[in-house]
Simulated scan of single mutants.
Amino acid sequence: MKIETIAIHAGNHVDPHTKAVVQPIVMATTFERDADGGYASGYQYSRSANPNRDALEKVLAQLENGVEAAAFSSGNAAGMSVFQSLAPGTHVIAPDDMYHGLRNQAKQLFAGVLEFDFIDVNDEATLRAHIKPNTGIIWVETPSNPLLKITDIKKVVAIAREHNIKVVCDNTFATPVCQQPLSLGADLVMYSSTKYFGGHSDLMGGALITAEKSDWWTKIRAVQTMGGAVPSPMDCYYLVRSIKTLPYRVKGHVHNALLLATFLENHPAVEQVMYPGSASHPQYEVAKEQMILPGAMMSFTLKGGQEKAKKVVNALKIFTQATSLGGVESLIEHRASVEGPDTKTPFNLLRVSVGLEHIDDLIADLEQAMA
């Protein structure tokens, strides 16, 4: 099936009792045992499994061409579960430009437990130089947050295979509509499903999808079950519902982003546009090769420094100045002020999540704000 069909049908089934065409929400925390003490239904306690979470995990796995998915209560919980599945002392190579929440988690919660090096994973010599005997994972985030760097997944995977290292890809900015890392050789894909999967800025979630049912995946599943950082049945239901429109929403987001990037590149107040769909992007050819669509996230820097950037975000009327991304509404953010004192993000940079409003209105809003 094509991705549009998978999105609609893989996470749903007709209720056998009522014949409802939309799967009902099962809020129960516990399930009745059989006469012999077993669980013929397959459900025992909602922390370990729930019909709505099963439906969500099924559609997530199929969207990514993976063998299985695990749903979590947030993207950070999904990432943390990967780190918790590793043996103490494992070395992790991560990108120098990545989501600051996960980077801070690695530095603060896992300090003294795991080893981390944050490097330019796109530089082959640098990557090879940082591989150690205890390196267990190379973490990639492509496109990256907030500089929209593109990592050549196939190249990283080839290097990792030489040393029996696993590759995890945070695909949140792209979604499976724009990029499918498992098909490019990655072992595991991570998402904040709060973003494009949810699509309406009203729920939280995270997900991991695996290419194979390995011993490592069994450990991750154990962390999910025993740790209990799982989404509620209600959140699972709404995620399954939102995913049904994901392919068409993302195509609309990308359509607007391509036009908005062109406008920004030609605006005299703009210093640089960072968008994988623009020919000016340093890794444009890599993006064209491995991405199905270039996504709808972009960043741009303004002439006039931080003062100009803050004036622009405060003058906008349609764009909302807020964190997060992937909703139907367009969001803009002065990213450095969110990331903290150790940020490497330029202070004149604004990150944009391009929404589904009419593109003429978005362009007009930016035009008046930058005037």
Rank of each mutant, 00 (worst) to 15 (best):
M370D: 10
I332K: 01
V223A: 10
T218Y: 07
P24Y: 01
H163F: 14
D361S: 13
Q62S: 10
L246C: 01
A186E: 01
A211Y: 06
D117E: 11
L246H: 03
K154Q: 13
G101W: 08
V189K: 01
P24M: 03
D123M: 10
V286E: 00
Y237D: 00
P346I: 04
Q180P: 03
K213L: 13
F319Y: 15
Q84P: 04
G198P: 05
E307A: 15
A369T: 10
V352H: 03
L86M: 08
N65Y: 12
G112E: 08
K308D: 06
P88M: 05
I131K: 05
V254K: 05
K288H: 01
L260D: 06
V140I: 15
P294F: 00
E212Y: 11
Y237T: 03
K166V: 07
N50H: 05
F116C: 00
I25P: 02
P51Y: 02
L259V: 10
E162G: 06
H100S: 13
F31H: 12
D235C: 09
P181I: 06
G199T: 05
T262R: 14
L109G: 00
Q108P: 00
H200F: 13
D202I: 05
L325P: 00
A174C: 08
R128F: 01
L147R: 13
D97E: 11
F116M: 04
K155T: 06
T218V: 10
N134D: 15
M98V: 05
H255E: 14
I359Y: 13
I25S: 03
L331E: 11
E367M: 11
A28H: 15
D215A: 12
